[in-house]
Amino acid sequence: MRQRLNKALGPVAFVLVLLTVWLGLFVTPPDVDQGELVRLVYIHPALAWVALYVAFGMAALCSVLYLWPRTRSMVFDYLAAAAVEVGVVFTILTLITGSIWGRPTWGVWWTWDARLTSTALLGVLFLGYLALRRVPADPHVRARRCAVAALFAAVDVPIVHFSVLWWQTLHQGATVLNSNLTPTIHGSMAWTLLLSFVAFTLVFVWMVIARYRIEVIRVAGQDVALEAAIASRRAEGVPS
């Protein structure tokens, strides 16, 4: 049952992304102010949602679960690593799509806006986490260090979220989850936006599961290779 769900997840996510693209490009109307440029709203916020809240939130949660002695398990370390890897990809895509939107809107590919800068910093922090994972160490020592590093980096997530309120620079405030909880988007545009959030979240889940399974196979492969090496050394016999 679980395997069937895993197999179905990829195609379902793919179809939902295609549906989002079709609705976003051909069904929803252009915006009164932004014109055709508004179509990026069906990709950019969903990517940011996955990167900032889902991926790095999951990484922080798994890190806490690893550090907590009662729930300590390598499963949480692998899941945190998978979430960060995919999260970094989504962060880079968020910055690229934001930059594409920024060029015609603000007149520049990049500006030192608080939201942009703190998001880029978050990406660099989690790139540091990935670099730390590649340092040779005992798996449990590495898992502990990475869990702490993930928690330190996750401190930046609320800063990114509230940056538009604290500094009020160029980046607009929240369209749906604003302080009054009154969405400023309606009709087919709102539904397509909602669909994009679901579609990209499913893409994220599918990628994390795939990355987690690769890690499990890689670790199992390492153990098998080690056992084979020991067996072959023993087979050589002890010289008299």
Binding site: V124, L125, L132, V135
Partner: peptide, 10 residues
């Protein structure tokens, strides 16, 4: 090489 990458963003 790792320490500056980890430390400077923080």
């Amino acid at each position: 090489t790792l320490l500056p990458v980890l430390m400077l963003p923080i």
